[in-house]
């Protein structure tokens, strides 16, 4: 196991907090009507993105679902251009064509969030295929939720990655909810990692602890880079908010939401760092201030950017 230094853990903490505050800011501007369409946030689930991305290089690939802000941020996208995209502006990563649900930055290996549940999984397997084909040591990470594991695309992708022995990590966040339906409605088994064995790959279960997830990811990434094939990792976590921002979660009940919110992966790490005296209260305030300034600047930037012109709508549809 890789030993993590306090500096690394502080970095984890900053990155997790940056994701949380970004999504909170997004919820604020979304509610104010500045962002259109759908917004799916991953508040309470910031540990997995930070843990996996700490094991990746810029040229490694990651592909996410509609709930993908955290991974894009942890992989290193520029917040100004990401914010511009969510604001639908031309200067955004996708020229204002994608919004939240398809955010991508291929220069950082962010292959794009996918609006089709499970649809992105085999695409990421293709990135792993390309790495193997070219003989590089790059890896490809597909992240998705428990709901996606009931899609045919998941099954086909897992099987293909296994038979072709591809450098792929399947990172499943089992937050217990497939949109508005709890796990027992959509899946008979409790541990989705049990499925891995049927494809001939290791299946690992971890909790929502960033250090624990980091260690599991480190092992899976090392296996993939060494040509030993794919790994399935199941992270057991919980969704604080609804399927989308604005979802009143009547199907879930206040007790369950309160119970989810009582578990906070960021607070857990913060308490550890305070206890270890690696961080002081003042440090935390400074980190918060720096993130808040960055987000204010990103929102200000996005607001100033121009919308694409209707005359440009078809630009680059064909090359």
């Amino acid at each position: 196991m890789k030993k993590l230094s306090n500096e690394q853990l502080i970095e984890f903490y900053k990155n997790m907090l940056r994701i949380r505050r970004t999504e909170e800011k997004l919820m604020e501007v979304f509610s104010a009507g500045e962002i259109q369409g759908f917004l799916h946030v991953s508040v309470g689930q910031e540990s997995a993105p930070v843990a996996i991305c700490a094991n990746l290089n810029d040229d490694d690939y990651i592909g996410t679902t509609h709930r993908g802000h955290g991974y894009a941020i942890a992989k290193g996208i520029d917040l100004n251009r990401a914010m511009a995209e969510l604001f639908g502006r031309k200067a955004g990563y996708c020229m204002g064509r994608s919004g939240s649900m398809h955010l991508a930055d291929l220069s950082k290996g962010v292959m794009g969030a996918n609006g089709i549940v499970g649809g992105g999984i085999p695409i990421v397997v293709g990135a792993g295929f390309a790495a193997q084909y070219k003989g590089t040591t790059q890896v490809a990470v597909s992240t998705f939720g428990d709901g996606a594991t009931n899609e045919g695309a998941f099954h086909e992708a897992m099987n293909l990655a296994a038979v072709l022995n591809l450098p792929v990590i399947f990172l499943c966040e089992n937050n217990g909810w497939a949109e508005f339906s709890p796990r027992p409605i959509h899946c008979k088994i409790e541990n989705l990692a049990d499925r891995a064995a049927s494809y001939g790959m290791p299946g690992v279960i971890v909790g929502n602890d960033v250090i624990e997830i980091y260690q599991a990811c480190a092992e899976a990434v090392a296996r993939a880079r060494a040509g030993e094939g794919p790994t399935f990792i199941e992270v057991k976590n919980d969704r604080w908010h609804g399927h989308f921002v604005g979802d009143a979660q009547k199907y879930r009940g206040k007790e369950k939401v309160d119970a989810a919110m009582a578990k906070d992966c960021i607070k857990d790490l913060e308490n550890l760092l305070l206890k270890e005296k690696a961080l002081k209260k003042q440090d935390i305030e400074n980190i918060e201030k720096s993130i808040a300034d960055e987000l204010e600047a990103a929102v200000a930037y996005a607001r100033e950017c121009a919308y694409p012109d209707p005359s440009e709508m078809a630009d680059g549809l064909y090359v």
């Binding site: 292959m111 085999p122 695409i123 397997v125 293709g126 990135a127 390309a130 084909y133 086909e156 293909l160």
Partner: peptide, 26 residues
């Protein structure tokens, strides 16, 4: 076998795999 690849009977899987491979330069 590197360049002529027999797949499982998984049209959705290998077609999307190809999309991912194409986005990475193949």
């Amino acid at each position: 076998e590197k360049r002529v690849i027999d797949t499982p009977i998984s049209e959705a899987g290998f077609t999307s795999l190809a999309a991912g491979a194409a986005s990475c330069g193949l």
